[in-house]
Each structure stands twice: as C-alpha cells, then as structure tokens.
Design a protein around this nucleic acid. Structure first.
Length: 434
RNA sequence: GUGGGUGUAGCUCAGCGGUAGAGCCCCGGAUUGUGACUCCGGUGGUCGUGGGUUCGAACCCCAUCAUCCACCCCA
C-alpha cells in the first residue's frame, strides 16, 4: 500500500460516481453567467510568484506559508495560483481588456494552497470566480450579489445560506483605520494573547473577532471601523443596501466581517452555511478598487467574488439537492445475444444514436454468456433492453424488454424502433434521420 | 504549523496475545434465448509501513506514513 504511488495529500480524484454532480453544478453556473452576460476567461494555473506576493499581501498566511512555489528550469520563481483574482487582473491588463472599457468576467478552475486538509478544504480546490471592472457605483456590487443569490435560488440553497455584509471603507480609510487599530493594540500589548500578537502583523482587523474572554473588555474599547468610514464609502454602502432591499435580498450586517486578502476595500460580503462544519464560507468577495493600479494599470474600480465548488457540492449532497435527472446514466442497453449478432448490433446502435440524439444507449461489449449479458444490462441502470439474436436478425425485428416495470416484452420491426424509443423515453427524433 | 480519532478483502466493518472473518461487490452454477428475488459454489488480504516486547503480535510499545475531524487560516 504505502509503496504504491498515490495522489498528493489534499488533491482528490473525482470519481465517476461524483462527477455528474460537478457537471450539474457547472452547467447551472455556465447558464447563469450567460444570462447575466458575464464572459468566461481562462487563465494559466501557474504565474510568476511576484504576482501573488504583490496582490494578496506579503504578510498574509497565503503568501507566507501556503503557496506552492518552485523554481522553473531557468531560475524564475513560479507559483501554482492560490486564487483567481490576481491572475484575472493580470490577464485583463496584459491584453488591454481594461483600457477605457468595462468588463464582466468569470472563470472556473483549480486553485492550490498548502494547508492542512479537512472537511471542505483541500490543497487543490476549485473555484468559480466573478470579476467586474470599471464600474464605480454600488449597482455592480448589487448585480454580482444578485447573481450569486439567484444561483442559490436555482440550486435550492436559499434557505441554507446567509449573506453577511460589511464595508471596509476606501483603501485610504481602511489603511488609516488599520494604523489606528495597530497603535491601540500596541498600547495594550500585554493583554493580547498569542494568536492576536501574530495577527497584529498579519491581519490586525481580525483581532476584533477574537473570542478570548480575557480580551473582551480591551476589544470593546477599540476604535470602530464604522467611525472611520469615509463619506463616499458610507454613501456607496447605503446605496448597495438600498438596492438589495429593493431586490428583496435579506442580509446580516456584520461589522466584524474582514476579508483575509489585503486588496479588499469598501464592500465585502460572505455567504455562509452552518451545514458544513467549520468551513462555513461558501462564497465570498468584495470590492478591490486599488488592485488594478497596484499591478500596473490605470486606477480601475473592481468587484468580484469566488465560490468554493467543493463546499457547494458538499452542501448539495448533504441536502440531497442534486436532481436525479442530472445524474445521467443509461436509458437503453442494446445486447447482441451471441457472437453472430455482434456486428449487426453495432451498426444498429449507431443508427439509433443518429436517429435519436438524446438517447443514452450502451452497446454491450465484452462478450460473455447470454445470462451475463442480461446481468450487465440490468446493472447498467437502463430502463429498456434491446435484444438482438439470430431470430430477430432473420426477421429484421428486435426484442424490446422493460427492465424496470412489469410489462411484457415486445417484438418490433427494426424500422419502427427509433420512433418507439423516442416515444417511450420522451425524446425527440433527429429532424433529418441519416 | 498544532491537537485528537482511524488505518484488517475492491467497499462497509468485526476480531484486540494463540491457524485471518462477515456483509456487500465480482465470477460461476441451479435456468438450452431472459436480468433483478432465492439457493449453492468460487476469486480475493505479507491486518498501512519499519522496528521493539513475547515461545507466539492484526492485537501490546515506539517511530513513520496515510486519512478524517478540529485549531489556525480561508472558498
């Protein structure tokens, strides 16, 4: 066992029994993006290390200890992307997508973080991301939040997720508040616990979130973010909440909500669930107006979010929300009864696939006794079996057997088969049968 | 990076010092052209790996690896 080569820790194979759930989810997402007119962009999985260091923040956990970084053969430092936003900005800038224009983009794919795996958290995980560039007002913030809300609606998740909302203020206001807060904590250094001392350097806003009762009094006296919000950010946030109210979206204002990545400013939000254990965030994002400039572009407002696909699929599984039809499978199992009908069965299968494009037909392969062929027909999950033996071959007929209901099998002319199957399975026939 | 749980057949697990087990799955048979239900038979394991204790270790001890859950952090 241990000598066998196995998958890298935290990097999972998606086996055939779960891939239909992914396909179901992905097709819903793709459809939704088209309806909201977001265009797909695909970026490489590997980027220069500096891209992430400069965007995510040098002292964040992600950059400090969670990146898969290695040297290319020519000595360049490369990194497996830990998130998509930085790559997306890089790609958009590199190809002039942000020059005097707006963009509504989305992407999907694997991300990599070297963390200890646990439920809903893996070293290779997958995200769907949405990014909108060039829009200053809160309408686009509302638009992307509404898009996510509609996805929950269509997946049946609405009752199981909560939207939390906050504003961090402008980049300047946020930075100023951060400084104020750090000085406050420095002044009370002796009251800080070990975790908080570490956060003082990495993410001081997070200290406010500490549950340590010994620090409660000191935290209550800390300067509040809300008092440091600049006037424009306040108006922006009020605009957003008014739009969400008008759209009938319920949310919780969470003044403690702080995103981990350095580039966020103004609007931040998170969709959470209590159904997944400790990894409850299923989708999160916000505004990052300063990032494009930081990466060498003109100042460009931007909003986006990322969803964790593993977490959402886990949630769909837990709540049993994947419709049976989405699981695909086999409608019809066509079996030659012996070697003499192998080739006629093969050509008949092709004829049927042309005539009824929606048909999921499995042709029996691999020989075996008639009994074992029937067993395989049953195991395939098909509702119908088509039996082609020497007798049928001689008469140009086929035997149609119902595998899932008490109903006599019938013998039909092969010419009538495609129409019968289409009717039984409620499928359309090809407009121009070949 | 830290803490705890678990590693025995393809899968789910029992056995906890004395010859490695069950259920499911798979294969074959009872049934020559009829699957699922039933009955009968069969394939399959250096008990995660390495060391130690013992006359004897799947079982006790140590180490190591993997996995799960939690902390941290995050989607």
């Amino acid at each position: 066992m241990s000598k066998k080569i196995q998958a890298i820790r935290g990097m999972n194979d998606l086996l055939p029994d779960v891939s239909p759930r992914w396909q179901f989810f992905e097709s819903r997402v793709r459809d939704l993006m088209q309806r909201y007119t977001f265009d797909e962009i695909r970026m490489p999985i590997v980027e220069q290390t500096a891209l992430f260091a400069r965007s995510i923040g040098e002292v964040t956990d992600i950059v400090e200890k969670e990146m898969y970084t290695f040297e290319d053969r020519n000595g360049d430092s490369l990194t497996l992307r830990p998130e998509g936003t930085a790559s997306c900005v890089r790609a958009a800038l590199e190809h002039g997508l942000l020059y005097n224009q707006t963009q509504r983009l989305w992407y999907q794919g694997p991300m990599f973080r070297h963390e200890r795996p646990q439920k809903g958290r893996y070293r290779q995980f997958h995200q769907v991301g949405v990014e909108a560039y060039g829009f200053e007002g809160p309408d686009i913030d509302a638009e992307v939040i509404l898009l996510s809300a509609r996805l929950w609606q269509e997946l049946g998740l609405t009752e199981h997720v909560t939207l939390e909302l906050n504003s961090l203020g402008s980049s300047e206001a946020r930075a100023a508040y951060r400084d104020t807060l750090v000085s406050y904590f420095e002044a009370h250094r002796e009251l800080l616990d070990e975790d908080s001392l570490r956060r003082l350097a990495s993410n001081p806003l997070r200290i406010l979130d500490s549950k340590n009762p010994a620090m409660a009094e000191m935290l209550n006296g800390a300067p509040q973010l809300i008092d440091h919000l600049d006037e424009e950010s306040r108006a922006h946030f009020e605009g957003l909440t008014a739009m969400l109210d008008a759209a009938g979206i319920t949310y919780v204002l969470n003044p403690r909500l702080v995103r981990g990545l350095d580039y966020y400013c103004r609007t931040v939000f998170e969709w959470t669930t209590t159904a997944l254990g400790s990894q409850g965030t299923v989708c999160a994002g916000g505004r990052y107006d300063g990032l494009v400039e930081q990466l060498g572009g003109k100042p460009t407002p931007a909003v986006g979010f990322a969803m964790g696909i593993e977490r959402l699929i886990l949630l769909l599984e837990t709540l049993d929300l994947v419709p049976k039809e989405a699981l695909g499978g086999c409608d019809v199992y066509l079996l030659p009864m012996d070697e003499s009908t192998t080739i006629p069965a093969l050509t008949l299968a092709e004829t049927l696939r042309s005539a009824v494009p929606g048909l999921h037909l499995q042709l029996h392969c691999g020989g075996g006794s008639f009994k074992s062929r029937m067993k395989k027909a049953d195991k395939s999950g098909a509702t119908l079996a088509l039996l082609l033996g020497p007798d049928e071959l001689a008469n140009d007929t086929i035997t149609l057997k119902f595998l899932r209901q008490e109903r006599d099998q019938q013998s039909l002319p092969q010419a009538a088969l495609s129409a019968t199957l289409a009717e039984l399975l409620n499928l359309a026939t090809a407009t121009q049968p070949t």
